[in-house]
Simulated assay, not measured.
Amino acid sequence: MKKLGLATALLLAMTGAQAYQVEVQGQAEYFDDSFNNNNYTGAVQGTYYFKDVDSSKGPLAEAAFLNQASNVSAAYNFGQYTADVKVPALNVSEEVEAQQHSYGVKAETYIPTKFVPVYASASYNHSKTDAKNNFTASNPYGNANVAKLGDGNGDRYALELGAVIAPNFLVAVGYTSVADQFAFDTFNTLSNNSVVSALETGTIGDDQDAITARTKYVGAIDNTNMSIGFEAGLVYGEDTLYQLKSDLYFTPKLSAGVSYTESSFAQTPSTAWGVNVNYFVTPAIAVGANYVNANAENSSRDTQVAGVNAKFRF
């Protein structure tokens, strides 16, 4: 009987459940630029919602947002980086290699009030960079690119406060403290892209503190089965970054989106545009793909990223 019950629950989750309380998602990316080569990242995130999320209200991808579902999450991201570093003045050329591990926990809550629902979030992330050879770790030549791949540990904390000022329209402002410039927001990597996440942490820079602001809206298109979503974000640290995103939901299951990110930080790709497509095979299972092209105006480090992702809800 126990086996039959488990099989029945699994079948319901895979074929048509309209409510869920847990979501697990994974992502893998491959990227290449003129400095790095053979680089890839992998990430996984688990989210627990305190109440059942009704996924019948609109686009399946935005069910939690439309339900104003309070939750807690944990995430992990792994990156493998290799690069050919040259120091012409010393006639030195060597391949360097490093691995990066990022861990994060996050909580989001929506609190009803007499006026509007209030939104709050808090997150903590820790990144560890592990150099895989002596050249990378010791950086004997003082090359700036090598230093970025050296050993290191970094923490970052973030708080956000906001409100749902109109149906499905969130406005929030926040504060982020980064103890190390290369401490990444693991959740940003999953929701956007590894290059965009790196651009964001580079924008905050050595100031270690940043002010953030963002808006998000999802709404139905009248007289159709379609919906549209918009997001805008701002990061103000040592430099300034802004991001625009839009998704068109052709049906509750199928969507396609575009994004554009720009930063005044000159040491990484300064602009990035991306496209994505996502499809829910069932209300509980989704697959997707994304592509990002990042342009470095002040260097030759143009970057292209291709990724795939999947979600499972139960």
Rank of each mutant, 00 (worst) to 15 (best):
P269N: 05
I204N: 03
V96E: 07
Q304G: 13
N36I: 04
V235P: 00
Y48L: 11
V173S: 08
Y242Q: 03
S34N: 14
H101S: 09
E23W: 03
G152V: 11
T268W: 05
Q208T: 07
M226K: 07
G162P: 02
D302Y: 08
S270Q: 14
G237V: 04
V118K: 09
T186M: 07
N168V: 04
D54T: 11
A179C: 01
G233P: 00
V178T: 11
A179R: 13
K106M: 13
N39D: 15
D32G: 04
D33K: 09
Y49W: 03
A306I: 15
Q267M: 07
A286E: 14
A147D: 12
N143H: 15
S264W: 00
N134F: 05
N91I: 10
P283Y: 03
T82F: 03
A232G: 14
L244P: 01
A43I: 04
G229C: 01
E160K: 11
G288P: 01
N91A: 15
V96P: 00
L241M: 15
T203M: 03
F312K: 04
A122P: 02
E200C: 01
I211S: 13
Y175A: 13
L244I: 07
Y260V: 07
S259F: 00
T251D: 06
A306Q: 10
P112G: 08
D54Y: 10
N278K: 04
R214S: 06
K148M: 09
T109M: 14
P167I: 11
T129E: 03
V258N: 00
Y249W: 08
V87A: 13
Q27V: 07
F230C: 01
D33F: 09
G288M: 03
Y40H: 13
S270M: 05
L11G: 04
G150M: 02
N125W: 10
A296L: 06
A163Q: 02
V292R: 03
D54K: 09
T303L: 07
D130L: 09
S264M: 01
A296S: 14
F280V: 02
N39F: 07
G150W: 04
A122S: 11
V196W: 00
S227K: 01
V118H: 10
Q25S: 14
V178D: 07
G229H: 00
L241I: 03
K86A: 15
E200D: 11
G58Y: 02
I285M: 07
A284E: 05
A158E: 11
A28R: 11
Q243M: 03
S34T: 08
S246P: 03
I111A: 10
N168W: 01
N91V: 12
G16C: 05
N192M: 06
S34L: 06
N278D: 06
K114N: 10
A61Y: 00
F182N: 15
Q45G: 01
T215D: 01
Y110T: 12
F35G: 09
A179S: 14
T82I: 02
N36S: 13
F35Q: 08
D180A: 13
G237W: 01
I211Q: 12
G237K: 00
T251A: 06
T136D: 07
T136I: 04
Y76F: 14
A107R: 03
Y249F: 15
W273V: 00
Y119A: 04
E94L: 11
A63T: 08
L254M: 01
T113N: 10
D33H: 11
Y40F: 15
D54C: 12
T15H: 06
Y20W: 15
V146I: 13
A74C: 06
E97I: 05
N298D: 13
E108P: 00
L12P: 00
